[in-house]
Simulated assay, not measured.
Amino acid sequence: RPGLVALAGGEALPGPLATELGSVVGRLFNVYGPTETTVWSTLAEPSPGEPVTIGRPLAATRAYVLDEHGGPVPDGLPGELHLGGAGVAHGYRGRPGLTARCFVPDPWGPPGSRMYRTGDLVRRLPDGRLEFAGRLDTQVKLRGHRIELGEIEARLAEHPGVAQVVVVLDPGEGEGAGESGQERLVAYPVGAPGGPEAPAADDLRAHLAR
């Protein structure tokens, strides 16, 4: 339907679904934003064959990719997305403590302005688009390395044969544990509609290594 414009939001848009939707509508937009910033804050128009991003900030919206100390993160590296601008709410009614944690001063905005800590990990691409990389609350530590499970899930979800995927930290105990008995990361993919149950493990490993 060439005259139809579709908006996808609320959850991460998998690449296969973006391709499927894009083939039946005139234009497809991926919109991102939490309730605390009046729902839509960024927008992207996915291109066939390219990874799906959440795009760039809408008008009157400021997007910052910051580290744990509140400093800007270099392009290409993951950091927490902070949103400022006209859409930022005043806070949570009757919850001053939570408001203070989530709505923080915006040092780059007008005097007195605040920004919202989304808890989402993103990276800024060289062209300015933002790429979703998971949630801060899915960070685990494995053999001394901090790992973002959401970042691995986002990469696996780009595989054309994967509809959904969950990655967890396996403690390496009990039935099904690895030979070494050590902690390991385990992915549970769901195959895309019309395809096999799920891609083979070696296929997914090769996809992650690219």
Rank of each mutant, 00 (worst) to 15 (best):
A157K: 10
G87M: 08
H145W: 09
I147W: 05
H90F: 08
G128D: 08
R93Q: 13
V140I: 15
A154C: 11
V65E: 04
Y64R: 11
R129N: 05
G134F: 07
G109P: 09
G79F: 01
P78V: 05
L156I: 11
A63Y: 01
L125R: 15
E131P: 00
A60K: 14
M115P: 03
V88D: 03
E158T: 14
P57S: 03
A59R: 15
L83G: 01
P78E: 04
R93G: 04
L58M: 13
G109F: 08
G76D: 04
T61G: 01
E158K: 06
G79Y: 03
M115S: 01
V65H: 02
K141Y: 00
G55N: 09
P105E: 12
L83E: 00
F103P: 03
R135D: 04
W108M: 07
R101T: 00
L130F: 06
R56P: 04
G85Y: 04
P105Q: 13
V140C: 02
R93D: 10
E153N: 11
G55K: 07
I152D: 04
G79D: 02
T118L: 11
S113I: 12
T138P: 01
E148H: 13
L98M: 13
P110C: 01
P51A: 06
D127H: 10
L81F: 05
R56A: 08
A60F: 13
G144P: 02
P126I: 12
P107H: 11
L136I: 12
H90T: 08
G55Y: 05
D120E: 14
L83T: 02
T138N: 12
H90N: 04
G94P: 09
G134I: 06
V65A: 02
L130K: 03
P105N: 11
D106H: 01
V65L: 06
P51G: 03
E68Y: 00
H82T: 02
H145G: 00
V122H: 06
G79K: 06
G97Y: 10
L98V: 04
G134N: 03
E131I: 00
V122G: 02
T99R: 09
G91V: 11
G76E: 08
I54Y: 01
R124D: 01
E68I: 07
R117L: 14
P72W: 11
E68G: 01
R146P: 01
H145F: 11
E80F: 06
P111E: 13
L83P: 05
G97Q: 15
R135H: 06
G128E: 08
S113V: 10
S113H: 09
Y92H: 12
L125N: 12
E148M: 13
S113R: 12
P110Q: 13
G150M: 07
R93L: 15
I152V: 15
F103T: 00
D67C: 06
D75A: 15
G94S: 15
L58W: 05
H82M: 13
M115R: 15
E153R: 10
R123E: 14
G119C: 10
E151S: 14
V65C: 08
L98I: 04
D75C: 13
G85R: 02
V104D: 05
R62L: 10
A86Q: 14
R155P: 07
H90D: 13
G150Y: 06
A100M: 14
G76N: 06
